[in-house]
């Protein structure tokens, strides 16, 4: 066991170095999260202390991108929280149906499962043809996998059950083809999805969109950064647009809470006031 304790100061200097050198800004992320990931990396790569990580990050771009992967958690699922998707069908789809063209932004889409789930739902509701889905993340590796749309079939049983609980109208297996250990999502689901690299901390307003999903991303940010990103979302939504957060995320502490109506409190679905 190392006897030297890693101080908060050392960690914040490392984050500062990453920001100065590579432009990725983790300085307002949850400190407990960052600390845990850095300590894991130190254990796995057998670093003596954080100074060693710091100098390697600054001199070795390959290693730096590994650290970025460490700090970006891409755990996701198809139809994660099925009752959320059920609520989308009931409460949000009717609103979307009133628009001739629909723009949807998945902020922090990870490896794409959420965007594919949305594409399936929109196809079933007859809205996919008039929709563009912008699925963004700052993790290019995750985006590349999202684009491929190839997922391990180990998860399919669970996804099928999620899909059914979410109110799916078909057989889930209609949406992919199996290939050895993997499934490949149908081309027809991909055609209106635009995958793009976008950093919520350092990049600007995205587009005028009808619906934003940003689920399980803000939990990694501190309160201050959450507020900044909420402003970005507010400015990206049309009046009457919809914001969906993760099932444990809240707008209540945000300065913008008063500017939304809660469409579904439990499923964290909000509508921007006119």
């Amino acid at each position: 066991m190392r006897n030297k304790e890693t101080s908060d100061l050392e960690i914040s200097l490392l984050l500062e170095a990453i920001f100065q050198k590579y432009g990725y800004d983790f300085r307002e992320y949850s400190q407990a999260h960052i600390r845990r990931r850095i300590m894991n990396r130190m254990a796995v790569s057998q670093f003596e202390d954080i100074a060693e990580i710091q100098s390697k990050v600054l001199n070795d771009a390959t290693f730096a991108s590994e650290i970025l992967q460490d700090l970006s958690i891409t755990v996701t699922e198809m139809f994660r929280d099925p009752l959320f998707y059920r609520s989308l069908r009931e409460n949000v789809i009717p609103i979307l149906k009133t628009y001739p063209f629909i723009k949807i932004w998945h902020a922090g889409c990870a490896t794409g499962e959420e965007a594919y789930s949305m594409a399936i739902l929109l196809q079933e509701e007859g809205l996919y043809e008039r929709t563009t889905i912008y699925a963004t993340d700052f993790n290019q590796m995750a985006l590349n996998r999202a684009k491929d749309g190839i997922f391990s079939n180990k998860m399919i049983k669970e996804y099928t059950s999620n899909y059914q609980l979410a109110g799916g109208k078909e057989s889930f297996s209609n949406y992919y083809t199996s290939n050895y250990d993997n499934v490949i999502m149908n081309q027809s689901l991909k055609k209106n999805i635009v995958w793009a690299n976008h950093n919520l901390v350092t990049d600007s307003v995205f587009a005028e969109v009808n619906l934003i999903l940003c689920r399980n991303v803000l939990i990694y940010f501190d309160k201050n950064l959450q507020n900044k990103v909420q402003t970005l979302f507010y400015n990206s939504l049309i009046n009457g647009g919809i914001l969906c957060l993760g099932s444990k995320e809240s707008l209540r502490f945000s300065d913008l809470y008063a500017h939304y109506i809660e469409l579904d409190t439990k499923q964290r679905i909000f509508k921007k006031k006119y």
Partner: peptide, 16 residues
């Protein structure tokens, strides 16, 4: 969700 505690004694959740 994993549950963690911040230095300011607030809770963080993650899905690592």
């Amino acid at each position: 969700y994993h549950l963690m505690i911040e230095k300011d004694q607030t809770f963080s959740l993650t899905i690592d």
